[in-house]
């Protein structure tokens, strides 16, 4: 079930150079929410921009009945969203999609977030903590000021390592380099990741090389959010195609089908996704 209606913006504050944190009072929606799911929000009440914007749940506060969204202003829709004031009404649908699931075999977990992809990982990290599962969180961003949420994670008392492309904070380089080091050194038994496609693509190469299973949260331009319009699809290997953990797929093309990011995902098993360049 999903909620669709008007909710109240409680907080909407700038937390980074292009980043905002919005907290929304929506008890009915919050009650149903799980880590990795998203909401579909309208950014204005007029017809331009027309579509809702899918934004992952960054915080789920079951007691207060609030969800929070950590989002980056990337266009007109998110710009309008960033201009909403506390007390404003927001048209919100959700929770939508299939979120993260924590398998029994996950005991030493690596959580990797790239850019704004860190947003949906917070409720997951909290859930892992509740289950007392050992975890390391790797955050990657282009520079120090684009690293969001590191303090928040530190307050959860989980191990956090940061990488920046320009070296202005933490490791200088890509978060996938950090991930590879960590996989070699600490031998995690499961991973969760969210970030831009090039990052995920590189990460899948690494995790497949080391036979590390996990889940990735994908992003795609979305229409309806409920599985009707088939706009937000991603390539998923079909059972008949050889599904190689080692990632030596060069040569024979793997057969795929398009699955819906909105309802089949946004979280998929890392072994089944195919990311194009």
């Amino acid at each position: 079930m999903s909620f669709c209606g008007i909710a109240e913006v409680v907080i909407n504050q700038k937390v980074g150079p292009e980043h905002y944190l919005m907290r929304i009072l929506a008890p009915e929606l919050t009650r149903l929410a799980k880590p990795g799911q998203f909401v579909h929000v309208r950014c204005s009440s007029v017809l331009d921009p027309l579509l809702r914007r899918p934004i992952s749940l960054h915080g789920i506060d079951y007691e207060r009945g609030t969800v929070s969204l950590l989002y980056q202003v990337v266009g007109r829709g998110t710009q309008l969203l960033s201009e909403m004031k506390p007390g404003a009404e927001i048209d919100i649908m959700g929770p939508l999609g299939k979120g993260f699931s924590i398998p029994d075999r996950a005991n030493r977990v690596l959580v990797i977030g790239g850019g704004i992809g860190v947003a949906p990982l917070f409720p997951l990290v909290q859930a892992l903590k509740r289950y007392k599962i050992k975890q390391t969180v790797l955050l990657g961003a282009r520079s120090a000021d684009f690293v969001v949420g590191a303090d928040q994670l530190a307050s959860l008392e989980v191990r956090v390592e940061v990488s920046t492309d320009d070296g202005s904070l933490g490791y200088k380089g890509f978060v996938t380099d950090l991930a590879e080091k960590h996989v070699k050194l600490n031998k995690p038994d499961y991973f969760f990741a969210c970030g831009p496609n090039p990052m995920l693509k590189q990460l899948l190469k690494i995790t497949r090389k080391f036979g590390l299973a996990g889940q990735v949260s994908l992003e795609e331009r979305m229409g309806c959010g409920v599985g009707a319009c088939l706009a937000c699809v991603c390539k998923i290997k079909v059972a008949s195609g050889r599904c190689s953990v080692a990632g030596v797929n060069e040569g024979a093309p793997i057969d795929f089908e398009y699955k819906k990011v909105c309802t089949d995902g946004p979280v998929f098993a890392a072994s089944e996704v195919i990311l194009d360049d």
Partner: peptide, 18 residues
Amino acid sequence: GNPTPRIAETPAGILNCI
């Protein structure tokens, strides 16, 4: 169906190529 992106927003409209 077609490769992504399959949808783009335009003024008061959308383009799709599902």
